[in-house]
Design a protein around this nucleic acid. Sequence first.
DNA 1: TTGTACGCGTTATCAA
DNA 2: TTGATAACGCGTACAA
Lengths: 328, 328
Amino acid sequence: MTIYDIAEKAGVSASTVSRIINNKPGVKAETREKIKKLLEEYNYTPDENARGLVKKATKLIGILLADIRNDHHSALAYVVERKLREYGYCSIILNAGYEPEMMVESIQVLEQRKVEGIILVGSTFQNAVVEKKLKESMLNIPVVLANGHLDLPNVYGILVDEISGVRQLVELLYAKGKRNIAFIASLGTLSSYRKLQGYEEGLKKYNLLEQKVIIEVGMEKEAGYTGCKKLLERYPYIDGIICAEDLMAVGAIRFLNESNIKIPEQIAVSGINNSIYGESCYPSITTLDNKMPETGLMAAETLIESLNGIDRPHKIMLFPTIIEREST
Amino acid sequence: MTIYDIAEKAGVSASTVSRIINNKPGVKAETREKIKKLLEEYNYTPDENARGLVKKATKLIGILLADIRNDHHSALAYVVERKLREYGYCSIILNAGYEPEMMVESIQVLEQRKVEGIILVGSTFQNAVVEKKLKESMLNIPVVLANGHLDLPNVYGILVDEISGVRQLVELLYAKGKRNIAFIASLGTLSSYRKLQGYEEGLKKYNLLEQKVIIEVGMEKEAGYTGCKKLLERYPYIDGIICAEDLMAVGAIRFLNESNIKIPEQIAVSGINNSIYGESCYPSITTLDNKMPETGLMAAETLIESLNGIDRPHKIMLFPTIIEREST
DNA sequence: TTGTACGCGTTATCAA
DNA sequence: TTGATAACGCGTACAA
């Protein structure tokens, strides 16, 4: 069912039908009613792609994330999709994986679809390969990088200040009387180094830098468990642990539970990222609210403003807050 | 950059460029090379939407789920998106919410985008309002309903046999010596009734139907905790609990932990759905693997086959398996 | 081997 | 108030 079909049935031209669909003036009320009825009857819906062709506006936005199953990413993507839809945009969500090559491939898909803007979710997109690709084929559309930053004229970065966040966690543990605070993390991503920096800054504030204990672990599920085990074998005097991810904290707590170590009396534990694990764990985990919904909202708004020709600051910083629970 | 621009630069016609892009024969090797170089140089990418217009094939698929943040949904959607992309399809993922009206609205978006097929994720889409909408405007494209079924010629249902799954859980608890097995659930969805049926069938097998104890709870996070509390106040002799969702089991286990009740010695607990909570809980939770990735794969394959004109059974059943952990 | 002409579904411009 | 026509970017039948 096209406007031509409708036009034929109504005995008018396609342009008239188009006018009515787009609520344009200059149509006799009578004709308007007649055609509106026909549109209803055949429940006609305009082809948004054909529309995009002539209007040079596909109303399509690409959302790239490493993995939709990751709850941080999906929490952010959810807000973005909803918000953009309010403004009439349709989102193409792609799992771009953790390899720069796959990211580039995904960007290519968005390029073919002629998206009007892109949202990259996660600091993993902040890499040279992606930057190069964006520079060579995405210079004329706005790109928002959630939790990262790229120095390109059309790229906006929304960042969460993980440094200050983790510093606050150190402060919290210090306030609880803990003086031997360890940090368990899987180093490698930019995000992890920012957290590390926050840890060190926190220690420095209390002249505890020499007590610094960092346990580097892998990305596997049991990392928190094995990391905590290793930690206590080497540094049995530890009384506070900051884990770079809630899931690690879950593993650490499991080890402490099994070892009959009292949480938080003997050892206080904190996670980071306010994931679903924190609340369900026993004891529940103190964590850092990483403001994913807020970041998503900010990302969506920034993109829309840019699409409307309004320029915003190219680097926006949000501040995480501590969610204190039983584990501290 | 269009094929015309490239054609002009090469001094040939647009059709020749088109032939090369689509690897069609009948082009002099020399011309082919020359134009290929130009395509590279200007890194031309065809407009997939314009292509869709003329080929009457958008290569677009719609994935509707209630909420991308729900880990069952995203686990399924992940597989589907990845698989469809392998076949050159691009996915439009929409959060359609839990209200039928919002679902219809989302279907409308897909209609405008002229998607070639739809995947509905979750039994919540199995309702009269959605069925009506599909019947009136989506009759000519294949629709796959993951975890549900609708009796329409173009709708395929992939189902997970929750009934047999929960029955197996009852059998497991029975084998562990438990004879007073309760069921905590938030009734209302089709899925929840299937689980309930499995519970009852399991009890019936051992002539325990009269010991049936059902605690109905809400959808809130603390449902498992409060439900378990209520359960033990009224039925203190209970020695086995099946929770309709892992998250409920987490809450229940928290209550049992706080009450110093030994798991599984005094009370064994099982969840359902194999979510991330189960493994991280202490003790870890026995649960039902609801085969989300497998369902997703099956859904994607069914859709693709149907798109290729191959008919498949309209109702496919997958069978969940028990993942036994510490809580039983 | 290559080019011309047309159509896909829509909107925009201009003329009637 | 309405209609004819061109254009968006592409693929394809047919002609050259």
